[in-house]
Amino acid sequence: MMKHIVMFKRLAHVEHHAGREAELVAWMRRLDCEIPFIREWRVSANELDRPICWDYVLESSFDDRDAVERYLPHPKHVELIQALKTYFEWVACDYTVAN
């Protein structure tokens, strides 16, 4: 099993727009319905106001590295990324979970 974790925060030069942000987060939250080989998928909002915190975290799981590598160029993922990059920056970590 491979975990794919991504943290998001609003771009520093982008003004907060609650409606646009809600739309993007809702889209993130439903991506697993469009890509059948995603095993686990959860998007959560940060709850504490601290300078080191990011705004959202995506926690997802895939069967293996090959599945993550199929996911990254998947058209539905690429479409979402195109929209997200106008509002958010992100960092990611991919790692294997030992059985």
Rank of each mutant, 00 (worst) to 15 (best):
V57A: 08
I38C: 04
W27Y: 15
Q82F: 05
S60P: 07
L31C: 06
D66F: 02
A12R: 14
A45R: 12
M7S: 06
S60V: 10
I52S: 04
E47W: 07
V6K: 02
M28A: 12
R30M: 11
A83Y: 02
E34N: 09
V68A: 11
V68Q: 01
I5H: 06
V78Q: 15
E21L: 09
R65L: 15
E34K: 09
A45G: 14
V78E: 15
M28F: 13
R20H: 11
W54N: 04
A12N: 12
R30I: 11
P51A: 14
P36L: 03
K85P: 00
W27H: 15
E23F: 10
S60Q: 04
I35D: 01
P51W: 13
L80E: 04
F37C: 07
V68E: 02
L72R: 15
V6P: 06
L24K: 03
L58K: 02
W54M: 05
I81D: 03
H77V: 00
I38F: 03
V43K: 07
R30W: 10
L84N: 03
R20A: 12
D66C: 07
P73S: 10
W41A: 01
R42E: 12
I81V: 14
H4Q: 05
H4E: 01
M7Q: 04
V78G: 13
D63C: 03
R30N: 12
E15H: 09
S60E: 01
R42V: 01
E34A: 06
A45T: 10
P51N: 04
D63E: 14
R30G: 14
C53G: 04
R30H: 13
G19V: 12
E69C: 03
V43P: 05
L11Y: 11
R42W: 05
Q82S: 11
H17S: 10
K9P: 03
H74C: 13
E69A: 09
L80K: 05
I38P: 00
L48P: 00
S61F: 02
E47Y: 07
N46W: 04
I52M: 00
P51K: 04
E79R: 13
C33P: 05
R70Y: 06
N46S: 14
Y56N: 12
M7C: 10
K76R: 07
I81M: 09
H17I: 04
S44W: 08
E40T: 15
Q82E: 14
R50V: 00
F62G: 00
P51T: 06
L24E: 00
R30V: 11
V6H: 02
K9H: 10
I5Q: 05
P75W: 02
R20L: 10
K3Y: 09
P51V: 11
R39F: 00
P73R: 10
V43L: 11
A12V: 10
I35T: 02
H13E: 11
W54A: 03
V14K: 12
A18N: 11
R30E: 15
V68F: 07
D66K: 06
V25E: 08
K3D: 07
E79D: 15
N46H: 04
D49E: 03
W41R: 08
S60F: 06
A26F: 08
L84A: 07
H4K: 05
